[in-house]
Structures are given as C-alpha cells and as structure tokens.
Nucleic acid binder design. Structure first.
Lengths: 242, 242
DNA sequence: GCAATAGTGTCTATCAGACACTATTGC
DNA sequence: GCAATAGTGTCTGATAGACACTATTGC
C-alpha cells in the first residue's frame, strides 16, 4: 500500500521511529447568500490514487511544514486561497482523527470554521457555495466531512443564540433589520424585533454611520461593526427552550 | 537532526511523499481534592534526546496507529493508564500545532479534558495532583502545556456557569451543599444557596437516594447522578457579569 | 391616504440575587 | 437551649416574549 507513513530511521533516537498519521486542516466557510446560509465546497480531484474522486469536500489539505507556521496560519492560508478573504472570523472547531477516515491511512484533521460576508469573496475556480436548508446539506461529502459540517452548523447555531457572531457575516454597512434577518436565517426561526434591537444595541457592538438606507418605506439607520473584532457574549439566550 | 519526518517514498503516489508532523494527544485531567481544583501532571523523562527533561507536563504522548482506533480512544487510553478511570467525562478541548512547540519538529497535539472524582482514581507512579489556586498553576510546564492548561481552566469555568459539569467531579453519592461547594471552588466565588438549589433540582439531573448524611447538625439528603450521562445546559448563567 | 417597513413602549413571565426565615440534628 | 448546617419563602431586578403602537418614507 502507498504511503505507509513510517518515518525514516534516525539512528540515534528510537523515540521518533514509528509511523506518523497524516495531518490535514479543513475549513468550514460560511456565508449568507440568497437569503440562506451557505457553505463553501470543492470537488475532489480525479487523479490516480485520489480518495473520493470527484466527491464534494470541505476546502483543506495537508499541513505544509515548510509554509505553515502553525495550524491557524494553515487554515487562514486555505481560506485565502479559496476566497481571497484575509481577515475573516476564524475559530477552531475541533479535530477528527482515526484509522479509517482516510483510505490512505491513519489521519487526523484539524477543522476550523470561518464566517465571511459573501460580497468580500472572490472564489477559486474549483470552489462553490452550497445552501444549507433545514440545518442540513443535501449532498454527501467525502471523508467524514459530513460530520464536520454538521458539527460546524450546530456550533454556529448554538453560538448565535448568545453571541454576536452573525455580525461577521454582514457587509461593511447594514441595518438592524438586515442583521435580524441573518440571525433568523441561521436559527431558522423568527425573532422578536423589539427584544432583538434592545439586546443588540445594549451589547454596544455596532455603531451608526451617518447614512440611512432608503426604500419604498421608512428609511433605516445604517450601522457598522465597532473596532475590536472580539465577539460579544450575551448573558441570556434568545429563547428559553420550549 | 533526528526524526525528520519524511515518509518513505511510495513510488506510485507522489502525493504522500512529504514530511509529516508529529501527532500527539494530551489530556487535562481535573479533580477536586482537599477543597480545591487539581490537575494531573507528570514529570518528563530524562533520557537522551528527550525534550524538556524532568519538566512537569500533561499526561499524553504520540498516537499509536496500531493501538488507537481514533483520537478519543487514544485520550481514553492515556487517562486509563494514568488513573485507572475508565468512564470519565471526556471532552475535546482543541488542538495546538506549530513548527516550534516541540524541539523535535513540526508537531500537533489534540488536547482533551477529563473530569473525574478523586476517590475513583489510582494514580500511576509518575503522576501527581497539583492544585490550581486563583485559577492558575504555580509551576511552569513543558511544551505549550501551560497554554493548554489555561485554556482548559477557562473552558471549565465558563461551562460551569451554565452546565452540570461539576457533577462529574463528585463521588457516587453527594449532598446539594457538597455540589454547591464544588461549583464554588471551580468558579472561585460564593453562590446563593437558594438559587443554586432551585436551578439544580429544576435541571432534573440528580435523584435522591434513600439515605441522609448525618453530622453534628441537620442531616442532608444524599443524591446521585441520574443515568444518561449527558451534561445539562441551563438557560442562564449564574451571575450576570458585573 | 395607503402600503410598507422602521422603530418604540407597555405588560407579563421567568429566574437569579439577596436575605430572612424555618427545620433538624448533636451536644 | 444553643450552635451549626439544611432547606424554604418572599421580594426585587433584569431581560426575553408578545404585541400594540407610533414614525417616515414612496406612490
């Protein structure tokens, strides 16, 4: 079998002379597009010996020990290569490793999840957005990427209940109803306008700009994210369960 | 230098013919002992070529691709080898990987954290409990284990605000004041007795056993964890911040 | 004026915090 | 009775939910 993963004997130290698992990084990249939550997926290559040829998969790949200083840099590089985005919200999601998840051998992936505004990205040729409907993706994914994506969706939904994360999905300027709509898309349920506004404004995370969005109705105040970038944690979730 | 980490050429597939990072798993094991939160640490071996000889470190080590089916099994094995505990609360904490964290080369560790009752453990010879005072450990640790431990403490404290995690630190039978004391130790602040009892009982996570703890005062009802094992999430944290 | 959306106010329910109060044991 | 700890009740404050109400635009 190809790629046994035993390191070259070092002579001196027997310590390191044993098979090493493969090490990869995958990134779950979310955005809001067409009024729904979408995730960036790629098609696997079709080359000889490639696992899951032509299947859909999360963007990711092997850690390059010559290019990547650390795991977060590796994830940021993959995000940049696929979307051109350089300063996203990027959070570690967890790691998945087992003897069987990759047919090439024992492998472990470090998964990250990123939130970006759709209008800030220029996609690579082999990458496309796929909508998440009803909290799930229709397509099957390569490896255990379906599990990783499900975990990412769950983490996102959970955090949206009590944090300002959706702010990172917004364009530079947005209105409060825009932001509420994004919360509702991610949570897949309507929120109370009054409670929503009170909470967001109390959190002191956004500031008004001297512009209004005009339309066929009353104009809405435009806001932008305050500097700082740290997500805000609310003290209560939006809805007591049941 | 020893342990370059380049895999043996496979001939067929050039894909896998590049250096692989080292892959390890470390476990942050907490318990309550002597009325304080404690973490299990080991002394690093002193052998030739060993990094951080004789320093304190988290229990952990390389993934054994022949013994470990997956990362969680590897973490459970290390916990079992050091404490004898077989069914702890075990949660993934995150992963740390960089070119510089291990002098032997690019390495990535998958960190877990475990909660066990002190009375259920029989420590390995080279392992000892170390108290965490004021939310920190006095000693410096090997590698980046200080960072990992700090993250684990923060995660534990954060989750204790709104979950039933401390229940996994308790012996089989305990009273409500016992449990409250453990919450207070982890959070390092006193809690209101009345609110605490209301919340815990409403969470339906423990059940009374037909016994009381007697002492030089009013006896206290003994409880045990209900079957199921899943931690309970409360809808509000204990204390609104400030 | 009317439709449409932005934004506010008012009432209620829930639950943590504070704290006083009662209960049950050993001595 | 007294000390000590277990356990309960009562009031207040913060905030989400529900929902009605006002505000400002285009047509």
């Amino acid at each position: 079998m190809a790629g046994e993963g035993r390191v070259e004997g070092s002579g001196k130290s027997g310590q390191l002379d044993f098979p090493r698992p493969l090490t990869t990084v995958d990134v779950v990249i979310f955005t809001i597009l067409d009024d729904s939550l979408q995730v960036l997926l790629m098609q696997r290559p079709a080359g000889e010996g490639e696992p899951f040829p032509l299947s859909l998969a999360l963007p990711g790949g092997f850690v390059d020990v010559t290019k990547d200083r650390d795991l977060a840099a590796c994830a940021a590089r993959k995000l940049r290569e696929k979307t051109g985005v350089t300063s996203p919200y990027l959070e570690q999601l967890g790691s998945w490793g087992s003897a069987t998840r990759d047919p090439r051998g024992w492998s472990a992936t470090h998964a990250y999840f990123a939130l970006i505004p759709a209008d800030a990205s220029v996609l690579a040729n082999d990458a496309r957005w796929f909508p998440i409907r009803g909290g799930r993706l229709k397509d099957k994914l390569a490896f255990d990427h379906g599990d990783i994506l499900a975990t990412a969706i769950q983490r996102l939904r959970n955090k949206v209940e009590y944090t300002s994360l959706p702010a990172y999905l917004m364009p530079a300027e947005f209105t409060l109803p825009d932001l509420q709509r994004v919360y509702e898309i991610v949570l897949d349920r309507p929120l109370e306008k009054s409670a929503f506004r009170t909470r967001i404004l109390a959190a002191d995370m956004i500031e008004p700009v001297a512009k209004m969005r005009r339309g066929p109705n009353r104009p809405a105040q435009l806001y932008r994210l305050k500097k700082g970038g740290e997500p805000v944690y609310f003290v209560r979730t939006f809805n007591p369960p049941e």
